[in-house]
Simulated scan of single mutants.
Amino acid sequence: MKKNTKRFLLLTTAAVGSIYAFNRFIAETSASKKLLTDGNGSYYNWKFGKVFYTKKGNGTPLLLIHDTDVSSSSFEWYKLVKKLEKNHTVYTIDLIGCGRSDKPALTYTNYLYVQLIGSFVHDVIGTSTDVIASQYSSTFTLMANQLDPELFDHIILINPPSIKGIQGTITTANKVMKDIMELPLIGTFVYNLTHRRSDIDSAFRQRYFKKPQLILGKLEDIYYEAAHSNNGNGKYLYASQISNYMNVHMDHVIRKLEKPVHMIASQDLQSNISAMDSYRHLNSSIEIHYLSGCKLLPQLEIPEKLLATVNAILDK
């Protein structure tokens, strides 16, 4: 009995040591190239942590909000900022839980980001602003607008998610999944396994870009580094996402929109046309603009085409 117990303890210790070593290896190697630096930005001390942002250019304010994927950051906008800053004071932000911002161990919800955006506009920008939000960030941008209609002027949403796709409820299984993902050792291990460099490459080839020849290795490296910065604490945002804590019912928000909202959708995504139709069904005042030759990230794949559409909207 004692021999079996000793063997079990030795195997357990070896397994724990291996997992710890793997987690440390990912934490160190993912940031070895130091591509995601904060030298050109500042930090906003929000109540739940420090939020990285940049401010460039002169003119009317314009806030750019990246998607909430754990590998995303304000780097998503780097091809547009240089063009937009000629006529606008352009603000980019790394959402809490992403990029260079803090990644605290808390439950991430749609309303958490509603609070962040509202506070950022009031405390940092200091006046109403035009806003461009990417993918899931479209949801809390619209929610923030509902709570405070003075926050935004023009609202531009790039590839907003399907309304039905973000309405899941939180089950007991979801809660258990979230608890497991947030465990100090095992949760980090699972997170690292599901966010490998190869997974970033697959995301770019299958979802982000239509033309894989346009994908730069450096771009994928930056996304990989963003996913694993802060010792893998992106797992807390990821845990909330896969457990439906980020989901929200948007029907009432869309019906009550009183200002023009422009949605820019990639027509090469098969699900996009039906998704846009669902928005228009709830509010016929929403204007839809379709782009071809891209998937989820036109701001990186076809920035010039996207810029022309954005400028046409902002010039109205």
Rank of each mutant, 00 (worst) to 15 (best):
L157A: 08
E225A: 03
L214I: 08
R207A: 13
G165K: 05
I26M: 14
M1N: 08
V81K: 07
N23W: 10
D102E: 14
N311Y: 04
I158K: 00
L257H: 15
D268Q: 04
F52L: 12
T68G: 04
H281V: 06
K6V: 15
I117Y: 00
E182G: 06
S74M: 04
P161G: 06
I166W: 00
A239T: 07
V90Y: 00
Q135R: 10
F48A: 13
G293L: 05
E220S: 09
Q135A: 14
Q115F: 00
F22K: 01
A173F: 13
L193C: 09
D69W: 02
N174H: 11
Q213T: 14
V176D: 03
G49F: 10
F140A: 09
V253M: 00
S266L: 02
S42P: 09
A21R: 10
I302A: 08
Q241N: 10
R197V: 02
Q241E: 11
Y223F: 12
S74D: 00
S274N: 00
A14F: 09
D315W: 09
A133V: 02
I222R: 00
N192V: 11
M177T: 14
Y53E: 05
L157C: 07
D123P: 13
K259H: 03
A21Q: 07
H252S: 15
D130C: 06
